[in-house]
Amino acid sequence: TELRLDINGREIKVDGADKETLKELLKLAEKNNDEKAIRIIRHLLER
């Protein structure tokens, strides 16, 4: 399955993203107070 998050109005594919990319996405999600995106990205970073 493909995991996509809508961050800042942009749909971004997050599964398969490297750790650096995920960290950047996490910063974006935190800036937007997007709890769902934050939770998902943190979960991916823990893998």
Rank of each mutant, 00 (worst) to 15 (best):
T1N: 15
T1Q: 09
E2M: 03
E2Q: 05
L3V: 15
L3C: 14
L3R: 14
L3F: 01
L3H: 15
L3K: 14
R4F: 15
R4Q: 15
R4E: 15
R4N: 15
R4K: 12
L5H: 04
L5W: 01
L5P: 15
L5T: 13
L5K: 08
D6M: 14
I7A: 01
I7P: 00
I7F: 10
I7H: 02
N8C: 12
N8H: 02
N8I: 02
N8V: 03
G9D: 03
G9K: 00
G9F: 01
G9Q: 01
R10S: 13
R10K: 14
R10T: 14
E11H: 06
E11Y: 04
E11L: 10
E11D: 04
E11N: 06
I12A: 02
I12S: 02
I12E: 04
I12F: 13
K13V: 14
K13N: 11
V14Y: 01
V14T: 03
V14R: 01
V14F: 04
V14D: 02
V14A: 04
D15Q: 06
D15L: 04
D15M: 05
D15V: 06
D15N: 12
G16T: 14
G16H: 10
A17W: 07
A17Q: 11
A17P: 04
D18S: 07
D18L: 05
D18N: 07
D18T: 06
K19S: 09
K19N: 07
K19A: 08
E20D: 11
E20R: 10
T21K: 12
L22N: 00
K23H: 09
E24K: 11
E24R: 07
E24A: 10
E24D: 11
L25D: 00
L25M: 05
L25H: 03
L26G: 02
L26N: 01
L26A: 04
L26C: 04
L26E: 04
K27G: 10
L28W: 12
L28C: 07
L28T: 06
L28G: 04
L28Q: 08
L28Y: 11
A29G: 03
A29P: 00
A29L: 08
E30T: 09
E30L: 09
K31L: 12
K31D: 14
K31N: 09
N32I: 12
N32K: 04
N33L: 10
N33K: 10
N33P: 05
D34M: 06
E35I: 10
E35A: 09
E35F: 06
E35R: 05
K36D: 13
A37D: 02
A37S: 06
I38G: 06
I38N: 03
I38L: 08
I38A: 13
R39K: 11
I40A: 06
I40M: 07
I40P: 00
I40V: 11
I40W: 02
I41G: 00
I41P: 00
I41D: 00
R42Y: 03
R42L: 12
R42T: 10
R42D: 06
R42N: 11
H43E: 12
H43T: 10
H43R: 07
L44M: 08
L44N: 07
L44D: 01
L44S: 04
L45Y: 01
E46G: 07
E46Q: 09
E46Y: 06
E46L: 07
R47N: 12
R47Y: 13
R47H: 12
